[in-house]
């Protein structure tokens, strides 16, 4: 790619950062060029971000409908999936899925809650609720086993 062809499209997904691209000058010599982004890259990053958003919105709806526990929402909200959260907590996928059940989530021990909160990087209080919903879905969070 020629230096003059390096896209400088100020893409949103760079958030005002620049990435270094290798390109050739008029003599064919390679240089590093700081690029404000290529719309092709922006399109695929946005596609990935939108997919994460779709999963998070879907999770929020399901929590509000009482189908799943807030943990399910927080997993997607932190851009994780079953595999990533399972590895981050060291708990099996099967166990995670069990904790997605609202009743079982409510009975979860303090120790397990702490493991989730740490892996997700949120507080114990936040683990039990949806942000911005004003609804405390988890009234038993003070209970210790």
């Amino acid at each position: 790619m020629k230096e003059s062809h390096v896209p400088q499209q100020n893409i949103s997904t760079y958030a005002n950062n620049k990435k270094a691209i290798y390109a050739t000058d008029e003599n064919g010599k390679y240089h590093l060029v700081a690029s404000t982004g290529w719309e092709v890259e922006e399109a695929v990053t946005q596609q990935a971000l939108k997919e994460l958003e779709r999963l998070t919105d879907n999770a929020r709806r399901r929590v509000l409908a009482g189908e799943v526990s807030p943990l399910y929402f927080h997993m997607y909200d932190r851009r994780m999936d079953l595999q990533v959260l399972s590895e981050a907590t060291g708990m099996s996928k099967w166990r995670l899925k069990r904790h997605f059940k609202p009743l079982i989530f409510k009975r979860m021990s303090h120790k397990i809650r702490k493991r989730y909160a740490d892996a997700l990087g949120i507080s114990l209080d936040d683990l039990g609720r949806l942000p911005g919903s004003g609804i405390a879905l988890d009234t038993t969070k003070e209970r210790r086993e």
Binding site: M1, A23, Y30, V44, T45
Partner: peptide, 28 residues
């Protein structure tokens, strides 16, 4: 299918490859 195509392009460009999935840096 669309996510799959997007995924290829992300691995090629987004993760910091110097363009074209390290092919330009190798040419350099």
């Amino acid at each position: 299918a669309k996510l799959f195509l997007g995924h290829i392009v992300r691995m090629q460009e987004e993760i910091g490859t110097g363009g074209a999935g390290f092919r330009f840096i190798y040419a350099s």
